[in-house]
Design a protein around this nucleic acid. Structure first.
Lengths: 211, 211
DNA sequence: ACGGTTCCTGACCGTATGGTCAAATTCACG
DNA sequence: CGTGAATTTGACCATACGGTCAGGAACCGT
């Protein structure tokens, strides 16, 4: 009548539980917002007693902070495709693909990020001002170089980046609206491919890049 | 020592108070989310006692519902520019202008809507399924007609609409992020014009419309 | 095997919040 | 005016929530 296999060592269990809690928290925060989420709900979803959550994460805010930071790191890492290309069609195209893939696979994270920013970024304002600012400036420089080399139209890099973020993240943040307009069904494989193709086609053509 | 002019009739006061409460509620909901918002905060911002709010709006949810419905009606009305044109450049261009103007003037409403949809539209699901669905189908039909007439590239109308919504609403929903990346200052007049121009330029060119 | 550390958890607490209510005030209207 | 309806509001209540804590269980190194 052993409840669980209990095969894990203490350190393994710690990592495992933290991952479990963070995953549950991401989902609950994304569905209810910070204020609407309750530690009890997260605990239930993680299958742990509430008091145990407070052992790993002393406060609700510290748990939330960890969730948001993880999302940000994940995005940053996935954005490397932008640098691994020196061709606008390849760089921006791959970036769109990567961000769309994240929107599809990790919609909760995107929603948490969106909510956090909409609420004036109370816990990750420093990230916006440092890491994100630097990243944006670096990518703007790359775009400006492409423009100077005549490989694309002279568009404002900031507004182009906003358009890329907005369009791709929309498929995660507004997935419920899209699903409703799609007859209540989530986009299927073909529809996701069509979405990616549409976005790439319009934006790449729009900035004067011919593949 | 008269506290207030008190010049208003009873019906005027009712309308006035409701407007006051709804405006305060929109702001508080947009900044804190439904769960994070408190009736006390809304009451303070409206300059009324909390109990008075419950006289006009029996529950927090009914107040919230009214806020969201107002936003939706406002958007619908502003979207008429789409129909008043039979040229894609004019129709879509004017639609972008109109939605950007709303993003600039009513960012709170956009944020409330975004949060509501992200949380799976608990109170306005019926609107998504009826009014929004019909509106979307109607606009998709117009776009398809333009395509059939050879006035723009054959793009998927749904994904084009999503791109329009995403890009324009991004300037409201993520205004804080944009402001931070803009050195902590809100976009000024020229920057808003540049944003509109960038979006119109890229999208219109992207769908093969030459003005 | 044993001492110390880490981990787990049920029971509990203080507070904040949505909502109620009844008494008081203001107003519309005959 | 006078009377009833609408409005206003301070005081109050029940509940739900974040967080605490003490005692016990599990585990680790030696």
């Amino acid at each position: 009548m052993a409840a669980q296999p209990r095969t894990n060592s203490k350190k393994e269990r710690r990592q495992e539980n933290e991952k479990l809690i963070l995953a549950a928290a991401e989902k609950v925060f994304s569905e209810a917002g910070f204020g609407g989420a309750t530690m009890q709900l997260i605990a239930d979803m993680a299958g742990l007693p509430k008091a145990n959550l407070h052992y790993y994460f002393p406060t609700k805010e510290s748990l939330y902070r960890q969730v948001v930071e993880n999302i940000f790191q994940f995005w940053l890492q996935a954005a490397d495709v932008f640098d691994d290309a020196d061709d606008p069609a390849e760089g921006i195209g791959a970036y769109i693909d990567a961000k769309m893939e994240i929107s599809r696979r990790h919609p909760s994270g995107s929603k948490v990020w969106a909510t956090e920013v909409m609420h004036r970024a109370p816990v990750i304002q420093d990230y916006l001002e440092t890491t994100l600012m630097e990243w944006t400036e670096g990518r703007a420089a790359i775009i400006n170089r492409w423009i100077a080399e005549g490989r694309m139209d002279p568009v404002d890099p900031d507004h182009l980046l906003y358009m890329l973020w907005a369009t791709t993240q929309h498929y995660a943040d507004f997935s419920h609206q899209i699903e409703t307009l799609n007859g209540g069904k989530p986009l299927d494989d073909a529809q996701w491919e069509a979405a990616k193709a549409s976005i790439k086609r319009i934006i790449l053509k729009g900035i004067g890049v011919t593949e």
